[in-house]
Amino acid sequence: MVQIEAFDVEQWMDKYEVTPGVLNIAETCAASISIDDLVALCEDPGTPGPLSTSTKLTYGAIRGSPALRARLAALYSARVASPMSADNILLTPGAIAANFLLLYTLIGPGGHVVCVYPTYQQLYSVPQSLGAEVSLWKLKKEKKYIPDLEELKDLVKENTKMIIVNNPNNPTGSTTPKSVLQGLVDFAKERDIIVLSDEVYRPLFHGVAPIDKEFPPSIVSLGYDKAIATGSMSKAYAMAGIRVGWIASRSSEIIEAIATARDYTTISVSQIDDQIASYAMSQSVVHALLGRNIALAKTNVALLETFVNEHSSICSWVKPTGGTTAFIEFKKNGQPVDDEQFCIDVIESTKVMFLPGAKCFGHGKDFKGFVRIGFVCETDVLKEALKQLGTYIREHLA
């Protein structure tokens, strides 16, 4: 029997997000949209709608529709000498399935994996469950949660099969600069190590601009065939409900290996989900969709920054530059709070929901006093949640 640790983030969400009247600032998707909202964003009235009701509901294209895979490939073809082919994209039911499937295919007993930390627990717990040894590449607050390549050198071993990063990072909201990504790719290429970048929050950047020389490209844009990116419609594209994710790699060998393993799992993505995602990624919709979500992120991160500054004797952070999450440390009398009890007390007293850092990202031993807040919700929800939270911490932590 496979032994795998409880997935603390997901269990916390399952337990508390159904609380009546909850002010959910734990959710990490950009504020979700409806199909009607999506159609309203379309900039070309002549574009066919997102659903063809006459399409027979077969399994559909097993690896994903040609239209959607071509549109996703175009994401990884900007500003590169060699465009990516649609054949190098494999659709999955969400990025969580993409990550699981490729780890299941490429990692096993006797292998070694280096994974950034903190990050989404799946990225290190699944390799461990598959019999691999995992070393944590620890991100530090004083370094703005940017991975240190010098520290990586001491973590890699002769049997290292994969290095895993998460950019933008969950839970910190940090982004790894281009020069660091290029250094990582060069390092891995010299040693023939696969690099996996979970890019589920890409391209939701709100603190770094494309004109910045350190603006982070996708890992698959940096000239290394054994680089893999995973993505999803859930976070940056605000459509978790359609369950569409993908794997991208310039290595046909990697894609074929994963596709072969995939035959034992999900077969295909729902045709309905595929159609909606394809519509969202069309040129007449995708720019407005991303524009909406980036604007929302910029508005809301400014509100959160004001809150942190106003309560600087109680909480501190490294301001996120991408994604939808912030990692905030709370203290009482100069000491970190018990973050798990803090989160429970806050939701019971105010209905404001967020996640405890030590429990969900540090297994109880790291990140004491930290909480993860998902701030790209509806702005009115964030405003009310911060109002209630402000009252609570002035009464209980000041």
Score class of each variant (00 low, 15 high):
residue 285 V to F: 08
residue 56 K to Y: 15
residue 373 I to L: 12
residue 385 A to G: 11
residue 270 S to D: 08
residue 181 L to R: 04
residue 379 T to F: 11
residue 90 L to S: 07
residue 87 D to Q: 09
residue 90 L to K: 00
residue 20 P to T: 03
residue 73 A to Q: 06
residue 26 A to C: 12
residue 207 G to L: 00
residue 294 I to D: 11
residue 205 F to Q: 05
residue 251 S to Y: 02
residue 398 A to Y: 14
residue 46 G to Y: 13
residue 353 M to I: 15
residue 91 L to N: 00
residue 180 V to A: 06
residue 345 D to A: 13
residue 391 T to D: 14
residue 113 V to K: 03
residue 383 K to D: 08
residue 3 Q to S: 14
residue 108 G to V: 04
residue 49 G to T: 04
residue 373 I to N: 08
residue 84 M to V: 13
residue 393 I to W: 08
residue 372 R to Y: 07
residue 55 T to R: 13
residue 198 D to W: 11
residue 46 G to S: 14
residue 319 K to Q: 12
residue 228 I to C: 00
residue 275 Q to C: 03
residue 349 S to H: 09
residue 87 D to L: 06
residue 74 A to I: 05
residue 330 F to I: 00
residue 226 K to R: 10
residue 75 L to P: 07
residue 337 V to S: 08
residue 366 D to L: 12
residue 147 P to A: 01
residue 318 V to L: 03
residue 253 E to W: 10
residue 242 I to P: 01
residue 383 K to V: 12
residue 76 Y to H: 14
residue 161 K to Q: 14
residue 349 S to M: 09
residue 63 R to P: 08
residue 136 L to M: 14
residue 73 A to T: 10
residue 193 I to N: 11
residue 140 K to S: 10
residue 298 K to Q: 14
residue 53 T to V: 15
residue 67 A to Y: 12
residue 60 G to H: 06
residue 9 V to E: 10
residue 273 D to T: 14
residue 136 L to Q: 09
residue 126 V to Q: 07
residue 246 W to P: 02
residue 7 F to Y: 11
residue 18 V to G: 09
residue 20 P to C: 02
residue 341 Q to H: 08
residue 88 N to E: 13
residue 148 D to R: 04
residue 380 D to I: 13
residue 322 G to V: 10
residue 22 V to N: 01
residue 373 I to R: 01
residue 22 V to Y: 02
residue 177 P to A: 04
residue 122 Q to C: 04
residue 207 G to H: 06
residue 95 A to V: 05
residue 376 V to Y: 11
residue 48 P to Q: 03
residue 202 R to H: 15
residue 94 G to I: 00
residue 158 E to L: 05
residue 51 L to P: 10
residue 289 L to V: 01
